[in-house]
Design a protein around this nucleic acid. Structure first.
Ligand SMILES: [Zn+2]
Ligand SMILES: [Zn+2]
Ligand SMILES: [Zn+2]
Ligand SMILES: [Zn+2]
Lengths: 137, 137
DNA sequence: ATAAACCTTGGAGTACACCCTAAGGTCAAG
DNA sequence: CTTGACCTTAGGGTGTACTCCAAGGTTTAT
């Protein structure tokens, strides 16, 4: 399958596929005589793996690591894979915590503001940000 | 106050202050004869505003908007300010929802894996990512 | 024969929020 | 008068995951 059809079937752009190839995530299994990329069923499976891993939150470099493990399964342990997964989960959790603080602060701010059409002279959002904060910690 | 002392008091780098100046967030109120930046009390207050806004999750360009409103309070309404705040909050909420999906998927994956020291031949994290997913919708 | 649709490469651009460097000028202390 | 700490500018680099472009070669249909 040439790159265009392959991209269409997977719902990604051809640029993305060339990008992934350049970054060692998916090298098409063959090329035509004039250099056209040809993708096989195995390539389809690998790309699906990549997309699923992306869907659960792994970054491309993490996915590359996972692929290395997948290619040399006997040289890596379950422990290693689970550790990566848990570490990623913890990172995600930390980011969620930070964003939740943002969310709470923004809610507090919004609640204080009347939201009317009058000039923002005494807008409590602005004054709260100006004054000593009743926001942080 | 010169830039170094000002930066120290606010817990930011001098590079950050020059960056903010270049991007229209905070222009020091004066310069010495040879061009040294001098920051005033008003500058301190504005920088505090910026840092507080950052702390609740606003991006620098959003903060720039907020500053524009703050400078011309009578030309803007409470409604406008509240709308910005709510819109930002919704964006944050959407991002939290996405990360929560990641978190849940990663937890599911991790739970299935034994985490032992044996080779990853049959690691359920890898097989789950390989096979038709029990993850996504 | 020619146009449309495909493919190739290399390289530049995007957003965000800085950080770092070089090359040089300024200022206070000893 | 020199040392060290400070300041200036312009410009490049970081990471992430692409996206877009130019300039050209190939394939397929009419
Ligand atoms: Zn109001
Ligand atoms: Zn208001
Ligand atoms: Zn296991
Ligand atoms: Zn496992």
């Amino acid at each position: 399958m040439k790159i265009g059809e392959f991209a269409r079937q997977l719902g990604v752009s051809t640029d993305t596929l060339r990008y992934y190839e350049k970054h060692g995530l998916l090298t098409p299994s063959s090329r035509s005589e004039v250099g056209y990329r040809f993708y096989s069923d195995a390539d389809y499976k690998q790309m699906s793996f990549i997309l699923r891993a992306k869907n659960v939150g792994f970054s491309l470099s993490e996915i590359k690591e996972l692929l290395q493990i997948k290619f040399h399964k006997n040289q890596h342990s379950c422990h290693e894979v689970k550790a990566m997964t848990l570490q990623k989960r913890d990172l995600v959790a930390a980011r969620i915590a930070e964003l939740t603080r943002f969310y709470d602060s923004l809610s507090l701010l919004a609640d204080k503001c009347c939201g009317g059409e009058e000039p923002a002279e005494n807008c409590s959002i602005l004054t709260t940000l100006e004054d000593i904060d009743g926001l942080t910690q």
